[in-house]
Nucleic acid binder design. Structure first.
Length: 880
RNA sequence: GGGCUCGUAGCUCAGUUGGUUAGAGCGCCAGCUCGACACGCUGGAGGUCGGAGGUUCGAAUCCCCCCGGGCCCACCA
């Protein structure tokens, strides 16, 4: 019936063996889920299958190692996956890795430079790509093994990679479709250039950092203009003021004037535009359209000349004359010196803070440039979605509609607001990168017309007899990861998986990539498949250290999840990452926390060890024989329902905590303590049942130790595919018996917390009220206790009894007068409360105006209040 | 500037739609080497719920203001 457990749980040995057992058993594959006749659902036609559960792993970058954030992702997704699998649905957790354009390329470039002193140009494109490829393959192996260590039950037979030939097909396909629909275009725009990595990045990849730098005010003809970037001012020949600005009312738009400037006299033109803020400084500014997005827009509005001042290396161009070729920092200083000599400096504010744009990957200072790039048009209507047949939406509208029309639910809800405001500010998405590592833009130009968008064609539109050259650039890495929910299922081919598992059930990721990834997956899926990519977005918080700081290598405050798994076991790490977390909120992690959950593993192990040793052979149904049995069964049912509800509503942390407390403080500290008494010798079936149900409920959270214990129960099936606990027939009886006891306790207003009933100690309840005949009978029956006489003034004990190891006694009244006034006061409160609700409910404006469920709630409140009034009155009567 | 979020025991956090005496884990103190577990058991100390005001019979919970921390977006000529 069962084999005994070793004294200690050797998690290291168990974890490896168990994961291998699960993989060998193909339990991670949806094909393994069968109907009651043992027929795989996946072998049946689509209409005969139940609704599946599918979650896509956010693919870790193929650059190295698994960090704590990844481990948290895996755990959260795996808990959902394992739960749904146990409910009998075909379940798919699809793993994979991301080629991560910028991150990977710069990492390999860095290694190359460090180890061989070479740049990627020394190697050439092809050789460099081979190097990256080798590096990635190596990293992927590491990642795969690390993911396994977390216990993630993902289907490795379906593993995907964002840069595989298969997914490349998907990228080319969607590019081609969007290109033909006019959603992708090439044009010269102001873009964010990173001179360090020599590529441009999208608006979302720009991270602003606060910095202190001198703020100069210069004399510019009759105007005074301010800047922190004197080095960009060579090309400035326009002064912009607000049309309503009184100070400059004497000038009209288009007026010109001569003035002395850095390299001699220039002619400047006055532009009136509302972009100039009269409140800021002097209200007048010069503009540098080539190197500022805002200025670029002003220039476009008025059709002004734009000139490049700084090159792609971050050095000044010949327009700067004597300063040409200088890097920015040096030039800035020299220019200030020169302007000072010319007497054109009005003031210098050394204490000025402003925001500097940097590349969030790699941290180079962004220099806006005007360049021809590929963009996705977010305003052109070209998207059809299946929940709004016949309408043609723009990308912006489709993104909004998916959430606004409740096709997608974002958890926590407050992120809706963030999401919508991001869309409101969304500009055309720059998708081309000057990197080598990535999906190459599937566009060809006739030789000699490279970069000319008017002659750009797709592969399929190449003409015979013309020699073509492919676009040099690659695509933003998010352009491929946005396809993840469907390209990983084989899109553009209509595979069975794609049809069955898409839209996926839930997308779990940290909130910091809501824009980068989540929004763009919605973009891709609505455009390419007319449906949403997932029904629910579960946004996790970030993991921080004990003091709330972000974990990072440079700070040295990071915790290596693998090291922790080695030390405390995967189950402990999983619990520490999930208990106490709620969607969208950051959580803190430190070693003691993990240690605490390792202790829990040991506790669970010993619970099992005790029960299996005491009751090795049990076949009978779990029929309660004592009050304690009843109690634990009814608590188990409540815990089961709480945990199930928690998992269904994505309250994973609460479920874990509930189980932790139940197992430790109720099963171990209370129930098992009672089991030690020989009068509980018939409780084997209940004890075994409690253990088994507990293991099932805990399995999604702590898969390894529960499966290991399960092995000793000698069951026909592995725990991983055992059916999730559901309500039992006998729940009702157990519940009824439990209610009698709790009612009794309620009536005697006793024991708060209810379950801390130590063995061999008294269960006490103080009361002034007598128990009803019915309650006495029930208690007497369950607890086999004898009642003494009715309460008398000052009596200390009105009932006393003993149930096996459990002594139950009910204390009598001490101060009838105090009790009377307390009850009276409470009654008054309750009555006025009920009056207030009645008043509210007699208000027709409220009843007709408020939502029905609110009114309903008020009615329920009233009922409760009146019930309580009845109780209180009864109690008062009994006091006389 | 716009928005979000947090402030509860020494530390990390729970506290459902307002409802008896505000909870847990760790830490601390006292006592337990009784055959599941010292990665343990039993008990205990410790909180004017950031501050002030308001609504209410009743506020950690709802509203206003203030203080302090974190985050996102816009923008800084």
């Amino acid at each position: 019936m069962s084999t005994s457990l070793p004294t200690r749980y050797d998690f290291a040995a168990s974890e490896e063996a168990l994961y291998a057992m699960w993989e060998d058993g193909k339990y991670f594959q949806p094909e393994t889920t069968t109907d009651t006749d043992g027929v795989s659902f996946m072998s049946k036609p689509r209409e005969e299958r139940p609704d599946p559960f599918c979650v896509m792993m956010p693919p870790p970058n193929a650059t190295g190692i698994l960090h704590l954030g990844h481990a948290a992702r895996m755990t959260t997704e795996d808990i959902m996956t394992r739960y749904h699998r146990m409910t009998g649905k075909p379940t798919l957790f699809l793993p994979g890795t991301d080629h991560a354009g910028i991150a990977t390329q710069s990492k390999v470039e860095h290694i190359l430079l460090e180890e061989e002193g070479k740049t990627r140009h020394d190697l050439g494109r092809e050789a460099f790509l081979e190097r990256v490829e080798a590096f990635v393959q190596d990293s992927q192996d590491t990642i795969r093994n690390q993911v396994r260590r977390t216990g993630a039950s993902c289907d490795w037979s379906r593993e995907a990679y964002t840069f595989s030939p298969k997914l490349n097909k998907g990228v080319n396909e969607i590019f081609a479709r969007m290109f033909k629909d006019g959603l992708i275009y090439r044009g010269a725009r102001s873009i964010n250039w990173d001179p360090k990595l020599k590529t441009n990045v999208s608006d979302d990849e720009v991270e602003y950092k606060e910095e202190k730098s001198p703020f100069y005010t210069f004399q510019y003809g009759p105007f005074q203009i301010g800047t922190v970037r004197p080095e960009t001012k060579f090309g400035d020949k326009y002064v912009v003021v607000h049309p309503e600005d009184e100070r400059y009312a004497q000038y009209t738009h288009g007026d010109t004037f001569e003035c002395e400037w850095i390299n001699g006299p220039i002619t400047a033109t006055i532009i009136k535009d509302e972009a100039a803020d009269p409140e800021a400084g002097t209200g007048a500014m010069t503009i540098t359209p080539w190197h500022s997005q805002v200025d670029f827009e002003i220039a476009q509005r008025h059709n002004l000349d734009i000139e490049q001042v700084i090159d792609l290396e971050g050095k000044l161009l010949p327009i700067a004359q004597e300063f040409a070729g200088m890097p920015i920092e040096e030039a800035r200083q020299r220019i200030v010196e020169k302007l000072e000599q010319k007497g054109l400096i009005v003031s210098i504010d050394e204490d000025y803070t402003h925001n500097v744009a940097t590349n969030y990957r790699g941290g180079g200072v962004i220099e806006p440039q005007v360049m021809k790039q590929w963009f996705v048009d977010v305003n052109k209507p070209a998207v059809q979605v299946n929940w709004k047949p016949g309408e043609m939406l723009s990308i912006k509208e489709a993104l909004q509609s998916a959430v606004r029309d409740e096709q997608i639910q974002i958890l926590p809800e407050r992120f809706n607001k963030t999401y919508f405001s991001w869309i409101d500010n969304l500009r055309d998405w720059n998708i081309s990168r000057q990197l080598w590592w990535g999906h190459r833009i599937p566009i060809w130009y006739p030789e000699g017309a490279v970069g000319d968008e008017t002659q750009a064609v797709l592969e399929e539109d190449k003409q015979d007899g013309v020699t073509y050259v492919q676009d040099e650039d690659t695509l933003d890495t998010w352009f491929s990861s946005m396809l993840w929910t469907f390209s990983a299922h084989g899109w553009p081919e209509e595979t069975d998986d794609l049809e069955y598992f898409h839209p996926t059930s839930v997308l779990e990721t940290a909130y910091d990539i809501l824009f980068f990834w989540v929004a763009r997956m919605i973009l891709a899926s609505t455009y390419a498949r007319h449906e949403v990519p997932f029904k629910t977005v579960y946004l996790s918080g970030l993991i921080r250290d004990r003091s709330g700081a972000k974990m990072s290598k440079s700070k040295g405050n990071g915790i290596d999840p693998l090291e922790m798994i080695d030390k405390y076991g995967a189950d402990a790490v999983r619990l520490s990452l999930i208990v106490g977390t709620t969607p969208g909120n950051d959580s803190r992690l430190y070693e003691e926390k993990i240690k605490g959950y390792r202790n829990f593993s040991t506790k669970l192990w010993n619970i099992a060890r005790f029960i299996l040793n005491k009751f090795p052979d049990v076949t009978a149904a779990p029929t309660p024989v004592t009050l304690a049995d009843n109690w634990i069964l009814s608590r188990l049912a409540a815990v089961r329902d709480d945990v199930t509800t928690g998992l269904d509503t994505y309250n994973l942390g609460v479920g874990g905590e509930t189980l932790y407390a139940f197992a430790w403080h109720e099963v171990a500290d209370w129930y098992i303590e009672l089991l030690k008494d020989e009068s509980q010798n018939d409780s084997g079936p209940v004890a075994r049942f409690v253990l088994e149900e507990l293991l099932k409920l805990l399995h999604p959270y702590t898969p390894f130790i529960t499966e290991e214990i399960w092995k000793h129960l000698e069951k026909p099936e592995a725990l991983i595919v055992t059916a999730w606990p559901t309500p039992l027939e006998q729940d009702k009886e157990v519940e009824a018996a439990f209610n009698v006891v709790t009612d009794m306790i309620e009536a005697t207003r006793s024991i708060r917390g209810t379950l801390r009933i130590p063995a061999e100690k008294e269960l006490t309840a103080s009361t002034t009220a007598d128990l009803s005949e019915e309650q006495r009978r029930a208690i007497a029956q369950l607890a086999r206790i004898q009642f003494e006489e009715t309460p008398r003034e000052g009596a200390s004990v009105i009932a006393h009894g003993r149930l096996n190891a459990l002594t139950l006694s009910i204390e009598g009244a001490v101060d009838l007068e105090a009790e009377r006034s307390r009850l009276t006061e409470e009654l008054q409160n309750e009555e006025s409360h009920s009056e207030r609700i009645q008043k509210k409910l007699s208000n027709t404006k409220f009843v007709e105006g408020a939502p029905t469920e609110i009114v309903q709630k008020e009615r329920e409140k009233l009922e409760r209040a009146e019930h309580k009034i009845g109780l209180l009155k009864g109690q008062l009567e009994q006091l006389g």
